[in-house]
Write a protein that binds this DNA or RNA. Structure first.
Lengths: 137, 137
DNA sequence: ATGCAACCTCAAGTGCACTTTAAGTCAAGG
DNA sequence: CCTTGACTTAAAGTGCACTTGAGGTTGCAT
């Protein structure tokens, strides 16, 4: 598979494939002249990267999580930690979603006068503070 | 409240408060000389901004969603659309979390040989494609 | 009154995730 | 054999969300 084919099959631009290679996220199996050749399973790797990105992981984190040799996730503890991080994020997003749904439905003139809305905000502020604490361990 | 106090109470750096003001996300109630003064409710606005950011909204989107006058969310349709977007994102994150948990527990040597994992990937790729479609309407 | 820490503005810098551009190489079809 | 279009690299550019720095002003404690 050449880079154009890999790009087409994965939906990821060729420029991004080169960029990901530079970052150690994917590898080409070899070259034909200067041109990169890819194994078919690169599309799966790219799907996994896309999933990780959508879940909020940085490219550096993903590179750590999925080494080049096809063995994803050597470090099960890291994986579990990430899963927990996602769980927290999911709870946060649910709160935001509920807050938005409430705001869309609430008849109060100012949402700052609505106690339900305020409760959402307090929860959110709390979570944000917790996140900061976690960041700096 | 001066900017230092607002920063302390909200946990948001003074530089960010100035930046947010420039972007139309918050407003100071006035000045004492050159120095900004803030009403107490700026902390609530900042909490809401933090929540929105955590949920994946850009500053520009948040500025549109919460005009300066304290009236948050004039546009209920926009709010509901955002809530739905969050719902999709939550589903995505759940898939990622489950995928990670599976990867952490799965005994297969290569996850690319594990059908359960592959199923997660196919779902993820599908969602990513759907997202792209939505982006370009 | 005066010193100075804390504020101010405006411009430039940072990190991430890419994309674009310029200049060059080369595989494959005519 | 030769053209050409798809590839190559390296470097610069983009957009977002801030942060930092330089140089200037000022509220307030002494």
């Amino acid at each position: 598979m050449d880079i154009a084919e890999a790009a087409k099959r994965s939906g990821v631009p060729a420029s991004t494939l080169r960029f990901y290679e530079e970052k150690g996220l994917i590898a080409s199996t070899g070259r034909k002249g200067l041109r990169r050749l890819y194994a078919p399973d690169v599309t799966e790797r790219l799907a996994l990267i896309a999933l990780g990105r959508a879940a909020g992981f940085s490219l550096a984190e993903l590179a750590r999580m999925m080494p080049a040799d096809g063995e994803i996730a050597i470090d099960r503890q890291l994986l579990e930690a990430k899963a927990e991080e996602l769980d927290r994020k999911i709870r946060e997003l649910k709160a935001m979603r509920d807050g938005l749904r409430h705001a869309a439905a609430c008849p109060a003139e100012s949402h700052f006068e609505c106690s339900t809305f305020k409760r959402y905000l307090r929860l959110a502020a709390q979570r944000a503070a917790d996140d900061k604490r976690r960041e700096s361990h």
